[in-house]
Design a protein around this nucleic acid. Structure first.
Lengths: 347, 347
DNA sequence: CTGAAAGCGCTAACAG
DNA sequence: CTGTTAGCGCTTTCAG
């Protein structure tokens, strides 16, 4: 900057002001400085700037793994909002490591970023310890026993709706493949599922909820166990689309057709839900809006610390596609033995 | 830091040294300082540190969109390697905006990050302009007319192999759904496809390659056009798994079965490829290793600028699953009219 | 082994 | 409208 100040024949303050777009510098001078800076390929050093200003105009999204298709769209939403308010967005991946989460969280204190968006239930200890939690907002998963503003949907309500849909289709024996034990959203979805069953006068039958961990493989394994039950469910509500896909694959592996022999409803409406075969009936979460809302809350609060960041609940939507159908009561419709998948025993 | 120096009754220099693990400070003193810092919840300010040191030990991955399933695993690979070498990883999303790409790239000059990994063919102008490109490495897509070290697979070779697989299955009328025009990898895959056809003595028939843009929707649209051809292809090689999925859905929409009526081979082996129905035959890219290799190259070069970062080509692999099968020559096998989709005709 | 002092690149009073 | 100056929080010679 000193260099370009010299070339322009002014002081660094003037250059600094000019480059920051201050009105306190003569328009013509400003243009001249901009031109010289451009020619020299000069760009202002944001870390020095950040050190001086004690703010970076960047926000950091911390998530367990970037490979989860649920997150992509929410990141995009965060970016949309952030960008429109002059903030940049970075994302950090913990890969489940608490240590890495700590390291990422530290970026807040360190001044490298002005705020944090958490897409996971556990907050880095360093954050809660330092009570810097007023520059943190969570999406989807409420932060474990800490009062962090959260943007989410009504998970229990959505689960109730999904289950009610199956009930409305005539199903009575409805299983649930739950999310990772310990996850808040998993618990809420189980609660909604149970509530719907109870409302329909169906006794809570513990055997029919089995835990998964939101992955395709866990859905497959869970479904396999469900299909081994003495009396098989005719429908299953899964706490995530990936598990629903796993469940469908497990059913296919036994020669069952979906939805003819088994109805399945997912949760999230990930990008592949509509492309999968059969197309998944699922609960749509407004991911992009969730990201936008969280960024909005966070930035409001950063720009004006007086302003509290309230939690927000956004509307979800049941998307009816092809993986759940009315229960067929005809005898042929419920083979006790799998129809021939690849040369097995006929029915 | 001054605060904790005072509490420890030493100077800031000593605290700085102690916290950095310098051996020049008495072990006991070091412990004491560490304890006090811990109690106070003090963490060193990385931006000040970065300003002083002129390095951040962070690398930035720039990609068009985080929502692309191809990228997840490569990011994980980058992180594995980076972490083991004491670097942190951040990812920035351009959403196709050149402006945002510029802003992200600027983090390099600005000192916010020590290196860049590009997962896109276009390099921010600010980077090429400032010739800082020796702290940049690309993955998969070679950077447009610039000499940036690149980690990739042999795209043409892989495409040749995929096409040869179809040829080996007896297919002769093989179409290609290509990637986004302008993309290097798309061009290489087209070349490989043509080479395989030529090697089999099949005349290059321009009509059978149609452009997509790597998305499910584009694959669907492309396949629809292909199915409208007077003489329909019996197989299609798609330059990406998402397009393959779209192609399969388009076929299903017309009542065609995959692979019985149409064989399809994809490219990339994204996570859903194995879960899709039918399971996708595709080219596997070693994404995690690609990420690791790129990070290794980059960090080698950052840690020792003398060391050049050579491009590397990693091995791919044809994964044979269920979406491509041997061409059936019996007359019934190639219906001119779609079979009944809902009820299927036995065979 | 420890301290004093300079300075990384920038911005913001404060004075012109 | 522009310049001088102090200082953001840290590290690192250079002297003890």
């Amino acid at each position: 900057m000193a260099d370009i100040a010299q070339r322009a024949g002014v002081s660094v303050s003037t250059v600094s002001r000019a480059l920051a777009g201050s009105t306190l510098v003569a328009p013509e001078m400003r243009r001249r400085i901009a031109r010289i800076a451009g020619d020299e390929g000069y760009v202002v050093n944001q870390v020095a700037r950040g050190l001086r200003l004690q703010r970076s105009r960047q926000i950091l999204i911390i998530l367990p793994t970037i490979a989860n298709p649920f997150f992509g769209e929410v990141v995009l939403g965060v970016e949309e909002e952030a960008q429109s308010r002059g903030y940049g967005v970075l994302v950090g991946n913990t890969s489940g490591s608490a240590e890495r989460a700590e390291a990422l969280g530290r970026n807040l204190h360190t001044g490298a970023v002005d705020g944090l968006i958490l897409l996971m239930g556990r907050i880095p200890d360093s954050l809660s310890a330092l009570a810097a939690k007023d520059r943190v907002v969570a999406i989807s998963e409420r932060v474990h026993d800490l009062d962090v503003p959260t943007v989410s949907i009504d998970n229990a309500g959505a689960a109730r709706e999904a289950t009610a849909h199956l009930l409305g289709l005539g199903h009575r024996r409805i299983a649930h493949i739950a999310g990772r034990p310990g996850s808040n959203v998993a618990a809420q979805r189980i609660a909604g599922y149970r509530a719907a069953l109870a409302a329909a006068g169906i006794a809570a039958c513990d055997g029919v909820v089995v835990d998964g961990d939101f992955s395709v493989a866990s859905g497959e394994a869970a479904m396999a166990r469900l299909l081994d039950l003495p009396v098989r469910p005719t429908a299953v509500f899964c706490a995530g689309d990936e598990m629903a896909i796993g469940a469908i694959n497990a059913a296919h592996a036994r020669g069952l057709r979906v939805p003819a022999d088994l109805s399945v409803v997912g949760f999230d409406d990930i990008p592949f839900a509509a492309a999968f075969n059969p197309r998944l009936t699922t609960i749509h979460q407004p991911r992009r809006e969730m990201g936008r809302a969280a960024a909005g809350l966070l930035i409001d609060h950063i720009d004006d610390p007086q302003r509290p960041a309230p939690s927000r609940q956004l509307p979800h939507r049941l998307v009816i596609r092809a993986s759940a159908a009315a229960l067929d009561h005809s005898p042929a419709a419920r083979p006790l033995v799998a129809p021939d998948p690849a040369g097995g025993r006929g029915s």
